[in-house]
């Protein structure tokens, strides 16, 4: 009879030993656009859109520049640090300077905004990000297809008159 009690105790003891701490999951940061954008991108296509012509229904309103001025070998790299914070960026391919070809970058929003609105890629000449040189628009955020679209808009007096549409695919 005593041996049965001991057996029962041992059984419960074993049950207790086999239990682990409950796994509630640890806190994980949500994926930011920096994570999606970081790395090296190839140019698939570059279009120059005449926004004035387009607004006034004048043709042609668009030209393809992909094969001109070395844009066929255009690459852009967006670098981040270990904490996924933006650092510097660089364009290679020896293309004309339609925007500052190297410097530092930052988004106006780390996450996809829930309300309609475009994410701005602000470009700076200094690491302190005090001197803004250009602003690009991220018009298509990289998803599972590893492609994104970036636009450079030329405006005067608040009215856009030209946009350059860069279609990029990831080289990572």
């Amino acid at each position: 009879m005593k041996s049965i009690k001991i057996l029962v105790l041992v059984f419960f003891g074993l049950l207790a030993l086999s239990c682990n701490n409950s796994d509630d999951g640890s806190y994980v940061e949500p994926i930011t656009i920096y994570e999606k954008m970081q790395g090296n991108w190839n140019l698939m296509n570059l279009r120059m859109v005449d926004q004035f012509a387009k607004a006034n229904a004048i043709e042609p309103s668009e030209q393809n520049l992909s094969a001109l001025f070395n844009f066929d070998v255009f690459q852009i790299t967006f670098n981040v640090d270990a904490a996924m914070h933006p650092t510097n960026y660089e364009v290679s391919g020896n293309v004309p300077p339609i925007f500052q070809l190297s410097g530092y970058w930052e988004l106006n929003s780390s996450f996809q905004p829930t309300s309609p609105g475009t994410i701005q890629i602000n470009l700076y000449s200094d690491a302190q990000k005090a001197n803004k040189t250009d602003t690009l628009l991220l018009t298509s955020v990289p998803g599972s297809n590893a492609e994104m679209e970036v636009q450079l808009i030329r405006s005067s007096g608040g009215t856009p008159f030209i946009s350059y549409v860069f279609s990029l695919n990831s080289n990572n």
Partner: peptide, 13 residues
């Protein structure tokens, strides 16, 4: 010419 309005940082077609 392309485009119809241009800045000094743009390509002239």
């Amino acid at each position: 010419f392309f485009p119809l309005q241009i800045s000094k940082k743009d390509f002239l077609g």
